[in-house]
Amino acid sequence: MNLSIFTMGGYGLYVWSAFAFTFLVCFFLFLKSRKSLKKLESDFKDEVKKLSAEQVDTLKKGKISKEILTSQSKAK
């Protein structure tokens, strides 16, 4: 097996650790954003459940609220 693509002429450790660090930071930011978004979405849904039918109707007239509720149900 050709190991030269991993050792990179002696610079392998530096190159791979730089790329790994970049990937880890990006992945961590992605997970953190997704987690907080999921939590907010489910909280929002729970609060809507508590509302009366009349209130839900007025809520669905708004473009944003409608979008949040429909895309949420699609995701599940």
């Binding site: 992605f30 954003s33 978004l37």
Partner: peptide, 26 residues
């Protein structure tokens, strides 16, 4: 492209946070 992806998630979260405050006023 990655920035756009994260931005969209964050922006969505901020919007929902804002709308949640609005729910109490209904």
């Amino acid at each position: 492209v990655y920035c756009a992806l994260i931005f969209l998630m964050k922006y969505r979260a901020e919007i929902i946070r804002m709308k949640k405050k609005g729910l109490k006023r209904l």
